[in-house]
């Protein structure tokens, strides 16, 4: 009896996942193994062409570039999100600070991209200020390169990193930091060797929440990027809408999906072990602790 009720409860969720996730994914898998139609679409004929076509040096280059941009952007995001999450967790007015992190979500994604163009463009506010200060006469070109793409990606996905980091740090027992200090650790040591190992789970979640969407970024490289910023997301869109090669678009999408889910699985497999060691900060550190009691 109970079992049936449980199934009934999860039914909407299952239905949702099947219709909007599993079914489209199956279609993509199927398309990636079919022959491309001359004018788009697919022909019902098995073919591995879409996968062999990925060996094309151009696509390899773009994959490498996408990986590079994603890693740099994720690392930068984490470096900024960590102190943010920490300060929110320790703050007395958490609610207000969290609210401030969430506020940008109320503005449309594209509008925020165009706002960056208005600020950093060749004729943007920043250049106006530089010219007014007579630091430059010509416009400085901030946008339309990889660095600008990384900057805007970091900005876009920062909240996705701050929120999980905050919720993990919030659960952290801060007296442990005091204990570490009492045992002779410097402030920096107490963060690196006590705080960080204890919030590993949050760091991993934050990293995934930023890396995965950035790896599939499309609009930011399209609008903020220049000639050197063509990423995998753009190739997929172009194969689908411009060069009419749906199987190739599908096979690249599949590769991206397999790579990212593979990453998630790898990390998820390791997780149970980490959760058990919530308390043992760093055995080596405890051994060198100069208190003699250990």
């Amino acid at each position: 009896m109970r079992k049936q009720v449980g199934l009934l409860y999860t039914l909407p969720q299952i239905l949702w996942l099947v219709v909007f996730f599993a079914a489209p994914l199956c279609i993509i898998v199927m398309y990636s193994f079919l022959k491309k139609g001359l004018y788009g679409g697919v022909e019902l004929q098995f073919s591995l062409e879409a996968y062999t076509a990925m060996a094309n040096p151009n696509i390899v280059l773009v994959t490498w570039r996408t990986l590079k941009i994603s890693i740099i952007a994720t690392v930068l995001t984490l470096l900024i999100a960590l102190p943010c999450g920490y300060s929110i967790a320790r703050s007395k007015n958490q609610a207000i600070r969290l609210f401030l992190v969430i506020v940008p979500f109320w503005t449309n994604f594209l509008v925020r991209i165009y706002a960056w163009i208005a600020i950093m463009g060749n004729e943007g506010f920043l250049n106006d200020i530089l010219r007014a200060l007579r630091l430059t006469t010509e416009s400085v070109q901030f946008l339309y390169n990889q660095a600008a793409v990384i900057l805007v990606l970091v900005y876009m996905y920062l909240p996705y990193a701050i929120l999980p980091l905050f919720s993990t740090i919030d659960k952290f027992d801060f007296t442990l930091l005091d204990a570490a200090r009492d045992l002779g650790a410097t402030r920096f040591q107490s963060y690196v060797r006590v705080l960080l190992p204890n919030i590993k789970g949050g760091l991993v979640t934050a990293g995934l929440f930023t890396f995965v969407p950035i790896f599939g970024a499309y609009a930011v490289p399209l609008l903020i990027g220049g000639k050197d910023s063509y990423m995998l997301g753009n190739i997929i869109a172009d194969q689908l809408t411009k060069t009419r090669n749906w199987p190739l678009a599908s096979s690249i999408s599949m590769t991206v999906t397999v790579l990212t889910t593979g990453l998630v699985f790898l990390i998820a497999m390791r997780k149970p072990r980490e959760q058990k060691q919530v308390f043992d900060a760093d055995p080596a550190f405890l051994q060198v602790a100069p208190d003699g009691k250990r």
Binding site: K227, D228, R244
Partner: peptide
């Protein structure tokens, strides 16, 4: 069109 696709990809992708 494949000939154009290949040429265009080389233009769009390269640095």
């Amino acid at each position: 069109l494949e000939k154009y696709n290949a040429a265009w990809q080389a233009i769009r992708v390269g640095k």
